[in-house]
Design a protein around this nucleic acid. Structure first.
Length: 203
DNA sequence: AGAGAGATGATCT
DNA sequence: GATCATCTCTCTA
């Protein structure tokens, strides 16, 4: 039988103004948007918000060489090395100095699936982009894209055309501010890094 | 299906 | 020297 796919088409291209809002508004608004890097990517199904006022954020202790992009204007990409092995990508939000960002945690692959399979070394689509490190490997994101504008090549982000059901819950893999429910995802998606518990789910 | 451990290196104390 | 916004493999069930 045919596999169920999300029925959200790419809408208009997002510009920096989209990101110049509260990170807690931008994050859920990104669920359902389409992210492409050099034409490869798909529908964002899971993100997390980080803000310099809470200790889980890289910006919590002020600017450093690594996190300086977070302290700049919104609409730029922050890429960092995770556990010495993986890359993770973030969209800088709010206003200059706010040092807030949205971590891209999972994508439903729709464009360039063959390239993603080759880069990841796996064939199962559910395993291509179901985690922040996997997303960057599949989309070819590394520190070379750090500080790149989100509305210019090689990055394209398109608004969603309809609002999906949004689930929220606590963030994954962190040791500080573990109680904040700043993880957002598409309800019922098969491409999440981890399911949302029903208790935390909301419209 | 869930738990545990190893890989691997930049960043910061 | 410790920490870490992760992933994959192996082991037990």
């Amino acid at each position: 039988m045919a596999e169920k796919r999300t029925e959200i088409a790419p809408g208009r291209a997002l510009t920096k103004a989209f990101f110049a809002r509260s990170v807690l508004k931008v994050a859920p608004d990104l669920v359902g948007a389409t992210l492409l890097v050099n034409g490869v990517g798909g529908i964002i199904v899971e993100v997390e918000a980080y803000h310099h006022t809470e200790p889980a954020a890289h910006s919590f202790n002020g600017p450093t060489p690594r996190n300086r992009v977070m302290f700049g204007p919104p609409g730029f990409l922050y890429v960092y090395r995770s556990y010495g092995i993986h890359w993770c990508m973030n969209f800088v939000c709010e206003k200059e100095g706010s040092a807030s960002a949205v971590l891209v945690r999972a994508i439903e692959p729709t464009f360039g699936i063959a390239a993603m399979k080759r880069r990841r070394g796996v064939t199962e689509e559910r395993n291509l982009c179901s985690g922040p490190g996997k997303v960057c490997e599949a989309l070819g994101v590394s520190d070379k894209l750090n500080n790149k504008a989100l509305d210019a090549p090689p990055i394209e982000i398109f608004a969603r055309t309809k609002r999906p059901g949004i689930a929220s819950g606590v963030r994954i893999g962190i040791t500080k501010a573990v109680e904040l429910p700043w993880r957002y995802g598409m309800k019922g998606s098969r491409f999440l890094s981890k399911p949302f518990s029903d208790a935390m789910a909301k419209q």
